[in-house]
Design a protein around this nucleic acid. Structure first.
Lengths: 340, 340
DNA sequence: CTGTTAGCGCTTTCAT
DNA sequence: ATGAAAGCGCTAACAG
């Protein structure tokens, strides 16, 4: 009895009114039943439910969300490249948390262009999302101040607005990684930074502080700010570093893609020590297992989602929070090579 | 002059009526301007635009989508684990395509439970998405027939409904991989399958066909159906395989996670040849670079999104399409080891 | 307990 | 060219 092709798109789906007529009750009663059925006689409710099944009725969430106050039950997630496991992990985690509360997650498509993010965000706000989780770029986000929607920033704070932020302890991470290298006697530790103003700055800060406290001067030629945070750029930069007169004996890569590039750039050269920021799948399977400074990225996403949900529900009215997750060193081999 | 905290959540955003009052025009005029401004005197339009800027007005997409026919400009994407690069790639690609057409993408949270997918899909339909892209599980999807929304399945077809499907040539891929191994003289080729009824079945079919055509009998003890498609299960299964009396000299892993597990299970044993299905980041960086059968996964996502957009727009009214993308062998080393 | 009614913000005729 | 008015499907008073 099952049809085998989708119903023609113009066939209008049944509404509550259809259900009401079918069940011989009022519109309000149907609404009550659909929303839990409190205050409706069991018998009536059954009749309504029967009608719902027969008609295949499904509540129109859009109309429901039109009601003022009743913000749509969806959150927006704005981030860069889903192909980056770092972002994918955040997405998955926040999706799970949102789903548990009956919220869907709308993904804003963020192209590369600088205007893309703002456009995407405004688009999303127009869709009446109940809240936004944003992994912001460097641009000004003050336009969000008057958006009337709760916002939680993830991984890095945004300019022009004081809102909740959930992130990793970048400076401590940078410090731990560098300490580890210096402690083993390395004196020429290079750092390769992806161009993300904030995290980059903090990680570099940790790197410098480690040097200062160890009494080791920083050779500025070993501080490399990549033009792009890709493996390709990191690979090129690594080659250049190793080709110079006095090459580093250790390299600190500031993101997972950069780590990949560094390893590629090093090729068969198994001399220099390498520590990466952010763990990645199969880091332990590479020829020399990769030592990293890692955080619980899924927790980053989960925490952000929980916080946003609480803000959206109005449950949480504290001033903007700043949640910082720890970063720990995971020794696997590449970071434990002694200096030459 | 910029405030530094988000506006209190109860501050209602300005509506078109506010704009109309402010500009001293009628509601309809504002609507016209917002939608391109055709048929409005330039001078009037300017006044309206000025009011829009001053008030920071933003069209309420929800109210807009309430209009019948005017399907919301968002597509739904329902898939499993975003943490799997395979799915993440699909998500990213479809997101880009959708974004170019001004569509947002809503992600359904698909938990592990079998009912999860159906619930998520119905939720999404209730949100009036213009179309659905689904990487379906094995359950029955006939309930979508009467949903009145175009659906495109990705990676595998669904039961109970004849809709568009974009996928990889699984059988050819299985054949190519197995051929490659047999051609090098391997006679004991194991295949490790993740439990996904369809792709698994096709890949296995290719495996069998390759054996048949080569006149090599299949040892059924080498056909392993994993209880779960995780690296852990694949690792355990690989250990078991290699521990048996007459172990295989080659292994064919049916997904990227399975490939990872196989490599882990093999550990230092660098004897057996390995071919994986689906390429993955850093496959070329492992101790022995990994030979894989790969397809353009991003293209899978892109194609699905394009098709869905056309269906949603009513532009494409062809009968359900079945688009199959090729799978090619990428030789990197692990698959070129000779039999012992 | 249940039916009726008034909007939510917008698009879209239909007059003017 | 522009204003007025009728809903879209639903929720939330308000009556009965």
């Amino acid at each position: 009895m099952t049809e085998t092709f989708p119903r023609s798109p113009d066939a209008k789906p049944p509404t509550m009114i259809d259900v009401a007529r079918r069940a011989g009750v009022g519109l309000g009663t149907v609404s009550r039943v659909v929303n839990g059925g409190a205050g409706v006689r069991a018998e009536t409710a059954d009749r309504v439910r029967a009608a719902i099944d027969e008609l295949g009725f499904q509540r129109n969430e859009v109309a429901r969300a039109l009601r003022p106050g009743k913000k749509s039950s969806s959150l927006a997630l704005v981030l860069g490249d889903l192909t980056n496991p770092f972002f994918a992990t955040i997405a998955k985690a926040s999706l799970e948390v949102a789903g548990q509360s009956g919220f869907a997650v709308v993904l804003g498509s963020v192209d590369e262009d600088p205007e893309g993010e703002k456009r995407a965000i405004q688009e999303l706000i127009g869709r009446q999302v109940a809240g936004l989780m944003i992994v912001p770029d460097q641009s000004d986000h003050s336009f969000l101040v008057s958006a009337g929607v709760p916002v939680v920033f993830v991984d890095r704070p945004a300019h022009g607005i004081d809102a909740d932020i959930v992130m990793v302890d970048n400076e401590a991470g940078g410090k731990v990684a560098t300490d580890h290298l210096l402690r083993q006697g390395h004196r020429r530790v290079a750092i390769l930074l992806a161009p993300s103003y904030y995290t980059t700055g903090r990680r570099l800060r940790g790197y410098r502080r480690a040097h200062r406290e160890a009494g080791v001067p920083v050779d500025e030629s070993l501080v490399v700010l990549l033009p792009e945070g890709t493996a390709e750029e990191a690979e090129k930069a690594t080659r250049r570093l190793m080709d110079q007169a006095d090459p580093p004996t250790a390299l600190f890569a500031s993101t997972n893609f950069v780590t990949e590039g560094v390893l590629r750039g090093l090729g068969d050269n198994t001399q220099p020590a390498v520590v990466g920021f952010d763990d990645f799948r199969m880091a332990d399977m590479l020829p020399t297992p990769v030592t990293v400074v890692a955080s619980d990225i899924a927790d980053l996403g989960r925490t952000a989602a929980h916080l946003l949900l609480a803000r959206a529900a109005g449950t949480d009215t504290r001033p903007p929070q700043r949640i910082v997750l720890p970063a720990v060193l995971i020794q696997r081999g590449s970071g434990e090579r002694p200096p030459v």
